[in-house]
Write a protein that binds this DNA or RNA. Sequence first.
DNA 1: AATGGTGTAACTTATAAAGTAACATCAAAT
DNA 2: ATTTGATGTTACTTTATAAGTTACACCATT
Lengths: 145, 145
Amino acid sequence: MRYSHKLSDAVHILAYVAIYHDDDLSSAAIAASIESNPALVRRLMGALRRAELLTTQQGSATPQLARPADRISLLDVYHAVEADTPLLHVDDKTNPACIVGGNIQATLRGAYAEVQDAAERQMAAITLASLIVDIRQREQQRNHA
Amino acid sequence: MRYSHKLSDAVHILAYVAIYHDDDLSSAAIAASIESNPALVRRLMGALRRAELLTTQQGSATPQLARPADRISLLDVYHAVEADTPLLHVDDKTNPACIVGGNIQATLRGAYAEVQDAAERQMAAITLASLIVDIRQREQQRNHA
DNA sequence: AATGGTGTAACTTATAAAGTAACATCAAAT
DNA sequence: ATTTGATGTTACTTTATAAGTTACACCATT
């Protein structure tokens, strides 16, 4: 498969909405910033809306963050767009007639769950607000140079 | 793409070598346990050998762990087989002529590095030895029922 | 030398992500 | 009320990566 950019693009959308709240927030405008296409943006916005991170309105391009950026975590966004795709994947096609093949799936599910939990705890500690601060700081530095 | 099972299959190989050390350790035998094919097993064993986790010999099927299982971590295996594939992927095709598109790549690289570090710390805390203990315990329970 | 496995490369297939197109639906403007 | 323009969603196509397959030189043991 290709590497998924759903999380990156979803964060991009939220940051774009937060920063450009007074400008054109159409899916086409956001797609131009992502260098992607409007349908992808609308699909991701749909997932963000269902996760209650973003409010949108059909017909008019006026999406808004559903709550302040300091109360939206990277984990919230991850759950919104990658809920059913864990970071590590168990091979579920092993031979049950073998000590290893018959048990390693459950063993790895446990181990991977610990890794996933650690990653998600870190994601929970990163807010959209902090990401936006970082984006703005980098923009300052770009304009300085 | 398809979901990568490299890490799972590499752990499978190491556990198989550790548990079945007196039996047939040919790539074909291990492939049968993974329900995969010998070439995949040999490719993964090559990566494990290059990472100095496994010793193999051409011509004879006698691979061995390069060091005790309690000194091989899940992180070691991850680095061996997925070194160049981080858990989260930045979209590197965003529009630089935009505050968000021009800076979000660097911002997300930083955030994702923190997530990766948290995940890797947890992987480092999980040893092959503990996974093998878990596999054996589950086998006991299977035989009990 | 013969046998049988490894190590590795080239090619094919499968599958998930992203791109594309189409269109009903809704909101705003006139 | 009708027109306009964007959304929400689906279906289909394209692309990229993992896994499967094949082939064969190489090595070790017999």
